[in-house]
Design a protein around this nucleic acid. Structure first.
Lengths: 250, 250
DNA sequence: CGCGAGCTTGATGCCGATCAATGCATGTGG
DNA sequence: CCACATGCATTGATCGGCATCAAGCTCGCG
């Protein structure tokens, strides 16, 4: 009950000696293989041959690292981070199982952000040149990959809207709704979740200080929208959060 | 002197009866054709057959419009806009000659933002399915297109950093440096520019109110960094702007 | 010439940052 | 097992930057 998702945390991770292929992966309806035929899946399997484990707190890649592959998250939870010369840094996203990491590296052949595991995680390596080769063969794959990139752009626009025009509580509400939405897609409860990130990381993502995030959580609890115990969150009134995002108060 | 770039504004625009091909376009080193061979350029020419004029204030596309093509800006200046259900809206970018519009539409086959011309403009239509077809043939084109999308993601991350962690004057300084940088790439003066957008649009992009933008301009003028006359800007001390962005004051 | 859109500037107030203290959970070594 | 350290979260008090409200101002244009 206390572990409603991502039960991998605190379980020791090893590289599995036998390969588990895309075609047998329970994330294939969320991940790169979505909508692909048997024949295509077979080819994908031969491309995505390598797994990599990343312990909590470790980097999957860092700014400046050479880019060679995309990473599909098989299990776990990540954050991505950019920083300016003078040390300001900004969490640009949180990624969970079935999502793709590393798109930032394509443009310059170097990664432009850090990807840090927030719990012990596993990723599947997708060598990018091979992905390009394969997507020249299979227009379905090509199309799917383009959609993924485009959706990332659209997602970023949403974050820009949030950062540019919402107040603190609206931001947190939007953030929580987004998280629960994505967890629901993965078959987890929409009302009960364990945050994998600190208040400070949430704050960085939302353009707020950690104290402000904490106060907003407390406010939501007072108002009966949430039950908050540290990182354990129960959503009591999702419609109340939604109302906040929609700016009912204005 | 007063028109240091984008001299198309206020000049009546007509659809040119004879086609000007990518291969003869003076933007080919900035735009999609970058780095392509003669043979590839020929094929590109046959794909990019249509031009479209967009008058100042008009939309190239709007949220919900069916997506079928990307648009390369041949001349002019655009803004892109997202908005939430409750009417909040956010400028997500300003685009100038040689840049691509419409990537947002790939993910859902519908555009997710408005693209509005800020001056009389011309765009080249790039039918997206044909682009996909061609980029399955030419890996150079494929690679280039992927880079463009990736760079858009990286750019958005930069804006998130700006919105999440910079103060008003730092934001405006970063914005101005970005604009002059892009104008320089296009052969215009780095020190003299005419803003094509209102204070309100700048504010929306930077997550500020128009009054704050105006005050920041005035402050820069007081400090001798800029000469500001309405939309006519002269940059006197680019290094002063750079120092602001680097957070010298902290 | 006068209108209106956009820009500037001033006065005031509020939201969220900052500073500071306390609380709570986990882990470690005596 | 307890004492203590450490990292994270909560809560309070105060401060400051930007939003808001409100006049004027500028410039292009009918």
């Amino acid at each position: 009950m206390s572990e409603t998702h991502c039960s991998t945390s605190h379980v020791p991770i090893r590289i599995e000696p036998f390969k588990v292929a895309c075609s047998g992966c329970n994330l294939r309806e969320l991940c790169l293989p979505l909508g692909m035929s048997e024949a295509q899946l077979e080819r994908l399997d031969s491309m995505v041959a390598t797994r990599r484990s990343v312990a909590r707190g470790e980097a999957l890649f860092r700014v400046g690292d050479a880019f060679a592959a995309l990473y599909a998250i098989r299990a776990g939870f990540f954050k991505t981070n950019v920083s300016s010369e003078d040390g300001r840094d900004q969490v640009t996203g949180f990624q969970m199982a079935g999502e793709l990491l590393g798109l930032d590296g394509i443009g310059t052949d170097r990664h432009t952000c850090d990807a840090i595991a927030l719990e012990d995680s596993q990723v599947c390596l997708i060598p990018f040149h091979q992905l390009e080769d394969l997507s020249r063969e299979f227009s379905d794959l090509q199309r799917h990959f383009h959609r993924i990139m485009s959706r990332e752009i659209v997602r970023d626009h949403g974050v820009m809207l949030l950062l540019g025009s919402m107040r603190a509580e609206e931001r947190l509400a939007a953030f929580l709704l987004n998280l629960t939405q994505r967890l629901r897609t993965r078959g987890y409860s929409a009302s009960s979740l364990v945050l994998r990130m600190t208040r400070e990381e949430i704050g960085s993502y939302l353009g707020l200080k950690l104290e402000t995030v904490s106060r907003a959580f407390s406010k939501f609890q007072e108002d009966g929208l949430l039950d908050v115990k540290q990182r354990q969150i129960h959503v009591l009134k999702p419609e109340g959060l939604q109302a906040l995002v929609n700016g009912s108060g204005c």
